[in-house]
Amino acid sequence: MSALVQRLTRFLRSPQGQQLVDRGRRELAKPETQRKLKQLASRLSSRR
């Protein structure tokens, strides 16, 4: 399992990984995305 974590860490530190992280941050900043995530969270919490 530690090998997988090491590979992920290396990828996230690479230029391609940094681009992916930046894209994710931009998407999470959008109000529509935040609304969708809140809806998903409420559906998942109501299942319990």
Rank of each mutant, 00 (worst) to 15 (best):
M1L: 12
M1E: 04
S2P: 00
S2R: 14
S2Y: 07
A3N: 08
A3T: 05
A3M: 10
A3L: 11
V5F: 01
V5A: 10
V5W: 03
Q6P: 00
Q6T: 08
Q6C: 08
Q6F: 09
Q6L: 12
Q6R: 10
L8V: 00
L8H: 05
L8P: 00
L8F: 08
T9S: 15
T9F: 14
R10A: 15
R10Q: 14
R10Y: 07
R10V: 10
R10I: 08
L12Q: 03
L12H: 01
L12C: 07
R13M: 11
R13W: 11
R13P: 00
S14Y: 08
S14D: 09
S14W: 10
P15V: 06
P15D: 14
P15I: 08
P15T: 05
Q16Y: 05
Q16P: 00
G17R: 03
Q18M: 05
Q18I: 01
Q18R: 14
Q18G: 06
Q19M: 09
Q19C: 05
Q19V: 03
L20I: 01
L20F: 09
V21Q: 09
V21M: 06
V21P: 04
D22G: 08
D22T: 06
D22I: 00
D22Q: 15
G24E: 07
G24Q: 08
G24I: 11
G24K: 00
G24T: 10
R25Q: 12
R25F: 10
R25Y: 08
R25V: 11
R26W: 00
R26L: 00
E27M: 14
E27I: 13
E27Q: 12
E27W: 13
L28G: 01
P31V: 04
P31D: 14
P31H: 02
P31I: 01
P31W: 02
P31T: 01
E32A: 15
E32Y: 02
E32K: 00
E32H: 02
T33G: 02
Q34R: 10
R35M: 04
R35N: 08
R35V: 02
R35F: 06
K36Y: 13
K36M: 13
K36S: 12
K36D: 09
L37G: 02
L37Q: 07
L37P: 02
L37R: 04
L37C: 03
L37V: 04
L37D: 06
K38A: 15
K38E: 15
K38S: 13
Q39C: 01
Q39D: 10
Q39S: 09
L40A: 15
S42H: 08
S42K: 12
R43E: 15
R43P: 03
R43L: 15
L44I: 12
L44T: 04
L44H: 02
S45E: 10
S45G: 06
S46A: 15
R47Y: 03
R47L: 15
R47K: 12
R48M: 11
R48Q: 07
R48G: 05
R48H: 06
R48W: 08
R48F: 04
